[in-house]
Amino acid sequence: MKKNSVILFLLLSLNLFSQDIMFYEKEISNKDNYEFYDYSVLQKKDNIKLTGTLITPKANYDKIVFIVPGSGKDTRNSHFILTELLLKNNIAVFRYDERGVGKSEGVFNNNSYTINEMTEDFQSIFNELKTTEKFINKKIGLIGHSYGGLITIGAVEKGLKCDFLIQWATPVERATESLKYQIKTGLNKQEKNLQYSDNETKFKVMDSISKIIDRNATLDEMSLKKVIYSTMKKYGYKKNDFGWYITFSSYLELLKKNFIPVYENIAIPTIYLIGDNDIFVDPVANTSILKKINNKNIDIKVFESLNHYLTSSKNLELNTSLYEIDEVAKTYVLDWIKSK
């Protein structure tokens, strides 16, 4: 990953034209060993068609896993190494093209495509497919990686029912805290969004904005921004110094979210996976929250010396190597799914 890039939240912001496969993705090998079923689902709210592919073993199988990748553009070819591992072990996989990407309709825009819309897109796909022939009488699980984990837990919050859930390097804590962690690790110092020379001031501004948002979360976007600007002015902060932080809908909606109550009450068998070298999501803070919650339905696994992608590589350039998940992590994920 290019270290000088501005990161929306957990992955690089991309401005690429729609295409069937992204340069950091790859089709699975040995395609003749599997069956492929293409689906097109209407997302009724925005009247766009979303497309994806179910890949199944040729032998009988009893589990299907939906894989939801992190932020940035993704097609039905993401997480290809994990996908092939599951298929080799008689577990079917469904992946989809995000809106405006691959064969899906709509427009992909990192600045305006919000967590709410992403969750609605995923829910539309899941709710439609679970009633179709290939999905009936199968155990259905979700793997949400990074931002994708926010989408899956958001869908659960809205009532989605699945048989098991994997939250992989997903922020459990509020977005403000995750963004502060990225400033500390040097991943995203928010130089444009927060034009202050020291982190202490940045953190004070971020905390103040977070509290204002919480007090006014029911307001529409324009009204909320006005309240933030006027309140921060009273606190002595100039709009020009922090305005970019709340300019885009995607950021503002993310700052509103609080999924901790969902984890407190979740009844779905869930496992939370993270590497102790993750510089995107704080492994200590997020696992501490889950330990404090102490929900018997949530298992926690921290992998020693692995990063956000559960690899040991220190090279986070955006290419296919990001998906080369460590053998220990792959085996652990596979065994956990098999046990459900």
Rank of each mutant, 00 (worst) to 15 (best):
K45P: 13
I271K: 02
Y147I: 07
L179H: 06
G70T: 09
L273I: 05
K45R: 15
L50E: 04
K26T: 13
I64H: 03
L194K: 02
D198T: 14
I212M: 04
S18L: 09
D198W: 10
K330F: 05
K340G: 03
K257A: 15
Y39P: 11
K192F: 11
I271G: 00
N258K: 13
Y235P: 00
V172F: 06
F9Q: 15
D282P: 09
N30C: 13
A92V: 04
E327C: 00
N319L: 04
A267K: 15
K139V: 08
T53G: 08
N294I: 04
D220L: 08
K2T: 05
L273G: 01
G106D: 07
L316R: 02
L50D: 03
Y237D: 01
Q167N: 12
T114C: 00
I209R: 01
S288G: 11
T231M: 05
E98F: 13
S210M: 06
A59L: 11
M232N: 02
G159A: 02
D335I: 07
L87V: 02
A329N: 01
N319A: 05
V262E: 07
F242N: 00
Y37A: 09
I246A: 02
T185S: 11
K296H: 13
A155W: 01
Y272W: 10
S210G: 06
K31I: 13
G106V: 06
D276W: 12
Q195I: 01
K73W: 05
E84D: 14
T320W: 04
W168Q: 13
E327Y: 00
G70L: 03
V172D: 07
G72C: 04
N265H: 14
Y309M: 15
W168T: 05
K291H: 09
R215S: 14
G148P: 05
D62S: 12
F9L: 15
I67R: 01
I136R: 14
K225E: 11
L224H: 00
I115Q: 11
N89C: 08
N297W: 05
G159Q: 04
F242Y: 06
Q167G: 06
Y235G: 00
I67E: 02
Q190T: 10
R99E: 06
N127F: 03
G106H: 05
S112V: 11
M1G: 12
D163P: 07
L310G: 01
E157M: 07
S197G: 15
D97C: 05
